[in-house]
Design a protein around this nucleic acid. Structure first.
Lengths: 207, 207
DNA sequence: GCTGAATTCAAACGCTTGTTTGAATTTTGA
DNA sequence: TCAAAATTCAAACAAGCGTTTGAATTCAGC
């Protein structure tokens, strides 16, 4: 595979990421992609076997890009005190608030995937989400009473993640009137402190 | 307007709710709707002026249906003790977990709206969400220290709502393996207790 | 029953969609 | 340099899309 054809391929991918993020799969046409990528229409079938193949490649690229950004390592949490681990986990969950450019597009693509799951990669994306939840469950167990049921621990973990994801999910809205949140590193740091402190106290049943 | 034509109109609406919920606006064709509704294609333009008009009517119907289901009354919270009010609010936020049939479709339509906001009704839906957040902010202020900034109070309220909405949003997923949550009235009641207790303790800075 | 309005109908319309085709061009490796 | 493979190209293809059209049918009110 030569460099010129790699340019073609990457241009298509880049254009597709942008358009799929903005309009979703059904709302994005092949002609819009090739126009944006400045390539010939047949190239999509040649390089990706068609629209669907392109979409799956985009999902794969988005997923891998997200993992690189996220740099999540569940093992590191285990070496921290439970308070540190909690804070670190919350910060990790809120980090996407600081995402820029391509990473924002990846996050938007996952939002589309949430309402319109694609069959083949459904497990792929879910597999990606599972470490978070497993890690969160393990983490909250360090705070909860020893006899806490699996379901209760999991619901605690889910609600902890929900405290963070609501900000990430509605980020665009919260930066506009009437909210006007200024989302920068300082805000994310303060919010991480805030949420982990709420959670810490909330789970402090018997200290 | 006569009864036979009302049947036509309602059949279209009902079919459209189902299909827009399942496939979104772009993924749903006029032909699929009229086939499901067993009406003639021109009826959509006659009754709703076209696909877009039908979609807006569907949004309107969904919104009104949701409000009827929700039966939210911010004033009632004010007459309760703050603990009662908190529990009541959380339960209210989790009630959609018990939604059935048509209400589930309405909720799915709002999920689509979240990733693909339609221009005209964006304010309409947001206006609907605002009472929740304003009410939640007012509620958490009853727990927070008197000098808490508006932004901090609002972030507390958002995180409270996030604890609830994560369950509603991912309800389908949580009822399947590996989660297998059995979501019934009892579960919702227990979860309401659980989340409001977590929140209550989390906000208990100076009692 | 009659007339005008409302509603439904079948099909056409003009455009868009993703895939395919075969030729042209570029790249690769001997 | 040459031949084969890879890649790109322009255009065609078949199907689908939402809107429109004008006729047919039904409804409503006198």
């Amino acid at each position: 595979m030569s460099r010129p054809s790699e340019y073609t391929r990457n241009n298509i991918l880049k254009a597709a990421v942008a358009l799929f993020a903005e309009r979703g799969y059904d709302g994005t046409s092949i002609r819009a992609i090739v126009s944006k990528a400045r390539v010939n229409q047949a190239a999509i079938n040649y390089h990706f076997k068609g629209k669907e193949g392109l979409y799956f490649e985009v999902l794969k690229v988005a997923f891998e890009g997200y993992l690189r950004f996220d740099n999540f390592d569940p093992e590191r949490l285990k070496d921290m005190s439970r308070e540190e681990a909690l804070r670190s986990f919350v910060y990790q969950q809120l980090r996407p608030l600081l995402a820029r450019d391509q990473m924002i597009r990846y996050i938007r693509i996952f939002a589309w995937e949430n309402v319109r799951p694609s069959k083949v990669l459904t497990n792929f994306v879910k597999t990606g989400a599972m470490p978070f939840l497993a890690s969160a469950t393990e983490l909250v167990r360090r705070f909860l009473p020893p006899g806490t049921s699996d379901q209760d621990a999991m619901c605690t973990a889910i609600s902890l993640m929900g405290q963070c994801s609501v900000f990430v999910r509605n980020r665009e809205q919260f930066t506009k009137p009437p909210f006007n949140l200024k989302i920068d590193e300082a805000f994310v740091a303060r919010l991480s402190d805030f949420i982990s402190e709420l959670a810490l106290k909330g789970m402090a049943r018997q200290l």
